[in-house]
Simulated assay, not measured.
Amino acid sequence: MAPLPHFPSDPDDDPGAYAGLDAETAAERARSRGWTEVRALAPGTFITLEYRVGRLNFEVEDGLVRRCWKG
């Protein structure tokens, strides 16, 4: 039987821990923890709903992360 392929996965990290941090600090922390793409978005920004492994999204208002989610 052939071996199963290796699929990439997200870093083992809690997105909720980024809320309240300033956007620059949050992005640096995310990259140091293995996130390959970090995206800061203004509240209400229209985005596509495709899931991308390794991407962390921040909703940033007044320079602070208000919420964070994977994909």
Rank of each mutant, 00 (worst) to 15 (best):
A2N: 09
P3N: 10
P3M: 10
L4T: 05
H6E: 15
H6Q: 15
F7K: 11
P8Q: 06
P8G: 10
P11G: 09
P11N: 08
D13I: 14
D13P: 06
D13H: 03
D14E: 11
P15E: 11
Y18F: 11
A19K: 08
A19F: 01
L21A: 07
L21E: 05
L21Q: 06
D22N: 14
E24D: 09
E24A: 12
T25F: 06
T25S: 13
A26G: 12
R29L: 02
A30E: 14
S32L: 05
G34K: 13
G34C: 05
G34W: 00
G34P: 05
G34V: 02
G34Q: 07
W35I: 04
E37T: 13
E37S: 14
V38W: 08
V38C: 02
R39T: 01
R39S: 06
A40I: 02
L41H: 07
L41E: 07
L41G: 01
A42N: 09
T45Y: 02
T45R: 12
F46Q: 14
F46A: 15
Y51K: 09
V53Y: 00
G54L: 00
R55M: 10
R55G: 04
R55Y: 11
N57W: 05
N57D: 14
F58L: 06
V60K: 12
V60I: 06
E61G: 04
E61L: 02
D62A: 05
D62T: 00
L64P: 00
L64G: 02
R67E: 12
R67V: 02
R67C: 01
C68A: 15
C68Y: 01
W69P: 01
G71D: 07
G71Q: 05
